[in-house]
């Protein structure tokens, strides 16, 4: 036994000639939220489907909560729950019927399944929508019901495949709150996302996947630190001051200062905040008035760019078209 929630070694899954997962090694501890971050088609969903025993790997091994996903798949299924990318619900049935159905399948008696369904509807604020067909639910309601269906029996490990894709910000925040509550209840959550902000907000650790391979792993802060610096942005009040400001900043910071397309803006990569205050004071002493300045940590976008050589957005289509692309990934 070990205390890892997920452990994979050399995991490969091919669809035709496409290597959707191309040698993935993961070691994910129990507890907390772990995010698998990557653009569409990176292989996130396929990794998750292998881990949830929904598809079998072509090569490599995967152990979930200490059990092999191929040889001991039933034990894995006893301990995990999956909320798929598309609502894994029967759209023709009502929300209440869906939860009762799952309850019965977990072995609840008719009455037990009914009262469990009521508890869940209440906790997920769906009581009033309980008798509506799921196909009439909004995206946020559907997602909440989907998660409710995943915890009819509390899993040790919950897989959430792109839980907020296509949701409005409000529904997204609700899902985030649910995830945080589950983690505080002791469930380990593995979620895939293509939104850097989501991984940043929710996850204790992040695995970055691109083209079927793991390209980075660590906490959000570690990943940002791996880029090595933050960015200082300065905008001068009077455009004519920009060359002078550039010279002062370059001298004080000792790094290259770039002129941006914005005719009043300058940016510089800095190692920390130490030299920045001195540089800003030097600007004031030189009589250069600033309209604005900011010092930011690198965003995960910049992290992604620095690791992969392309930004996540390069390959990420609009939110609205993500479903289509993912279907293509699966059909490939």
């Amino acid at each position: 036994m070990n205390d890892l929630a997920i452990e994979t070694s050399g995991l490969v899954k091919t669809f035709g000639t496409t290597r959707a997962v191309d040698g993935v090694d993961l070691a994910i501890a129990r507890g907390g939220v772990h995010a698998v971050l990557g653009p569409n088609g990176a292989g996130k969903t396929t990794v998750m489907r292998v881990l949830a025993t929904l598809t079998r790997p072509d090569a490599g091994t995967a152990r979930v909560l200490g059990r092999d996903v191929v040889s001991d798949s039933k034990e894995v299924r006893r301990r995990v729950s999956l909320t798929g990318q598309f609502a894994s619900l029967d759209e023709d049935l009502t929300g209440r019927d869906n939860l009762r159905l799952i309850g019965r399948l977990f072995g609840y008696s008719g009455r037990g399944a009914r009262s469990r369904a009521e508890e869940l509807l209440d906790a997920f604020s769906l009581t009033d929508a309980g008798d509506k067909q799921v196909k009439k639910y909004s995206g946020g309601m559907r997602r909440r019901l989907d998660i409710a269906a995943s915890i009819v029996v509390t899993p040790e490990l919950l897989f959430l495949d792109e839980p907020t894709t296509g949701l409005d910000p409000r529904s997204r925040n609700e899902v985030w709150d649910i995830v945080r509550a589950m983690v505080s209840g002791g469930t380990t959550v593995l979620l895939t996302t293509q939104y850097l902000e989501e991984a940043d907000q929710l996850a204790d650790r992040i695995t970055v996947i691109d083209r079927g391979r793991v390209i980075a792993e660590g906490t959000s802060a570690e990943l940002k630190a791996s880029v090595g610096s933050g960015t200082l942005v300065v905008r001068v009040m009077d455009r004519a001051d920009r060359p002078a400001a550039r010279e002062v900043l370059g001298r004080e910071l000792g790094v290259e200062v770039r002129e941006e397309i914005d005719p009043s803006a300058l940016t510089a990569n800095v190692a920390g905040s130490a030299g920045v205050t001195r540089a800003l004071t030097a600007l004031e002493d030189a009589g250069i008035i600033l309209a604005q300045f900011s010092l930011g940590q690198p965003t995960l976008d910049e992290v992604f760019l620095s690791i992969t050589g392309h930004t996540a957005e390069d390959v990420e289509p609009e939110r609205g078209s993500t479903e289509k692309t993912s279907t293509e990934e699966q059909a490939a």
């Binding site: 977990f106 072995g107 609840y108 008696s109 037990g112 469990r116 508890e119 869940l120 209440d122 906790a123 997920f124 915890i151 009819v152 029996v153 509390t154 709150d177 649910i178 945080r180 509550a181 589950m182 505080s184 209840g185 002791g186 469930t187």
Partner: peptide
């Protein structure tokens, strides 16, 4: 969140 935690705790396996 307390309501959520409550349903998680009560999710005993039959």
């Amino acid at each position: 969140q307390q309501a959520l935690l409550a349903v998680l705790v009560s999710g005993e396996r039959p």
